[in-house]
Design a protein around this nucleic acid. Structure first.
Lengths: 219, 219
DNA sequence: CTTCATTTATGACTACAGTCAGTTTATAGG
DNA sequence: CCTATAAACTGACTGTAGTCATAAATGAAG
């Protein structure tokens, strides 16, 4: 390791080597952030969000209490950081595993069912997560959430376009607008589920009806 | 006043008089709650939600700090109590002032425009309000919000039914389901507006497109 | 190796939402 | 009127998110 560091000072900007560009400082920071996120994931999952204190997280990550807030703006921010990657992956996987031959409505239900299944693992956490995702405390900067929404909207719009060119969808509106409409319905039905106002079965039934209205097909 | 109190003890359950049924205790409680809500409305409007402390509210309402929490479960609860009546009234007024002859899409835009106009008065407050309304801290009990949603859903469903019987709407789905779909779209577009991601003009344009998709008419 | 400047780390500290043991005030019965 | 019981009130107190002045670590330059 010490050798690597010296080599770096010999050739200050060597293009051949992958990336010794980052000094010890940057590496330490990355590593610390990883420890923080890891500790938070563990604690949030084990004890729940409200029951976990920032002190506990700092202690588990082996840093001072104040240090934590050099890496995250708030406890809620941390929650989003921890789980946004998983959500993104869930969304990607959901779109990847779609049955291309199925009717559009069934395809949509496949996607949204996968996403609900993820949230069903821990409804309480999902509630707080969704809350913070849709109402980020600092306006104009939701931690990496835009990417998630982009993936979802693009995926939905893509399904619509394909179904339409196959003559299976008779909505003429712009695909992105339809995608947003579909997502809006998913979001509100998810809210009902997370708030305990519907069961998983009711969620599916209601969502299917809502989506059917949007894409103008029989439920 | 003292006379009234004595009269009460003479005839313990006099049916003729309007309602001396409530003793001083109940009256005091009502009056105190009114003072609390009034003080909170004033302070929230003047200084914003985050900048207002529960101590300030208690002081302005002339009660002890602890007393406040005999009347509300949390600061957020108080926000909802303060503004849910106004929102309900806004929604009622919006439905009442509809042009019965206009196309369904225009009617819907009238309703939702009125509701946005209310929120435009104070976007920050609206943000926190919507957040708390849709994610009440104590699950299963949103302070008087069900009533608001009932009014909105019923109103929307009613518009749909009327338009349909006039042959102006070709959606066959249950009216309540359509109403929910419409509201979901309003809600998400409102979220974009409150998050500063769209202007008021963009909000209108986008909402109109989204609603048009749901009721299956040209935008 | 030795400064020196800059970035990063730290925990004592602050501010505030919400609680609770102890007190006051209203009502009912005598 | 007086007394007993229950309801309502209170502010000192607690727990925790987030800040800030100070200290340590890092890298650059001589």
């Amino acid at each position: 390791m010490a050798g690597q560091r010296k080599a770096q000072s010999v050739v200050s900007d060597a293009p051949g080597v992958a990336a010794p560009r980052v000094g010890r400082r940057e590496r330490n920071k990355q590593e610390k952030l990883a420890r923080i996120v890891g500790a938070a994931r563990q604690l949030f999952s084990d004890q729940g969000f409200a029951e976990t204190t920032t002190q506990q997280i700092a202690e588990a990550a082996d840093i001072g209490t104040g240090t934590l807030f050099l890496y995250v703006r708030s406890k809620e921010d941390l929650l989003v950081m921890v789980f946004s990657d998983e959500m993104l992956e869930t969304a990607r996987a959901a779109f990847a595993s779609i049955d291309a031959a199925a009717p559009l409505l069934d395809q949509l239900m496949q996607v949204f069912s996968s996403m609900l299944a993820y949230h069903e693992q821990d409804l309480d956490l999902a509630r707080i997560l969704l809350k913070e995702v849709m109402f980020p405390h600092v306006i104009g900067r939701g931690a990496g959430i835009t990417e998630l929404l982009d993936v979802i909207f693009a995926g939905l719009a893509d399904l619509v376009v394909k179904a339409r060119s196959a003559g299976k969808c008779h909505q003429e509106a712009p695909p992105l607008m339809i995608a947003e409409n579909l997502f809006a319905n998913y979001y509100l039905d998810l809210l009902g589920r997370l708030g305990g106002r519907t069961t998983a079965v009711q969620f599916h039934s209601r969502l299917r009806q809502h989506l059917a209205i949007t894409i103008n097909v029989p439920a």
